[in-house]
Amino acid sequence: MTGKPVLVAHGDRPREGGPDRKEVEVAVGVLIRADGAFLLTSRPAGKVYEGYWEYPGGKVEAGETVEQALRRELIEEIGVTIGAVHPWKVERVDYPHALVRLNFCKVYEWTGELHMHEGQQYAWQQLPVTVQPVLPGTVPVLQWFAEERGFEGPTHS
């Protein structure tokens, strides 16, 4: 795939699967409260990048649209049913374990109480975020928020 360059995370580490790795499609939910705070969740124990903070979401399964995958993943992962999905931006990230295409979608409405089904933590954040470490694929989103909101200074610690 050509076009926008790929964000390379931890380029000093070897890549699994070699140069012909298949790109993994991922649906990512950027839940935003009325006060502008956004939801970050920690990666669960036992997963790659355990303890890193990210936006919730997951892989798009065969036959699913990004929106369908996001709805399914957010029920499974954090226990909420989302309203309208607003596709926002796409970022390709080359992690040592996978090449991913992150489809970021803004979500302003949801029902249900947050329940972390995978034992992860969650935090409502404003810029600059106070949780760390932040997953490399999350960093561009913080920069996009900074641009949208006219925020000057570092977006994370």
Rank of each mutant, 00 (worst) to 15 (best):
T41A: 10
E50F: 01
D94I: 11
K22S: 10
W88I: 04
G36Q: 07
V48P: 12
V28T: 04
I82S: 01
A45M: 08
R43L: 09
I75E: 15
G29F: 10
E67K: 07
D35T: 00
R21G: 02
Y95A: 08
V60D: 03
I75P: 09
P56F: 01
R101E: 14
E73R: 14
E50Y: 04
A69Q: 05
A45Y: 13
E23D: 06
L99R: 02
L99D: 03
V100R: 14
P44G: 02
L99I: 10
P96K: 11
G63L: 06
K59L: 09
V80G: 04
L39S: 11
E64R: 11
E64M: 00
K89P: 03
K59C: 07
T81E: 15
I82W: 10
A45Q: 14
A37P: 09
P56W: 11
L70A: 01
W53E: 06
A69V: 01
G58H: 11
T65Q: 00
E50S: 09
G36T: 03
V30W: 03
V66S: 03
G36P: 11
G36E: 11
R33V: 03
I78W: 08
H86V: 02
G63M: 01
G79V: 14
K47R: 14
I75G: 10
D20F: 10
V93W: 09
V30S: 07
E54Y: 04
R92T: 15
V80P: 03
A27N: 03
K89D: 12
R92C: 15
G79S: 14
G29Q: 06
L99V: 04
G51W: 04
I75Q: 14
P87L: 11
Y95F: 15
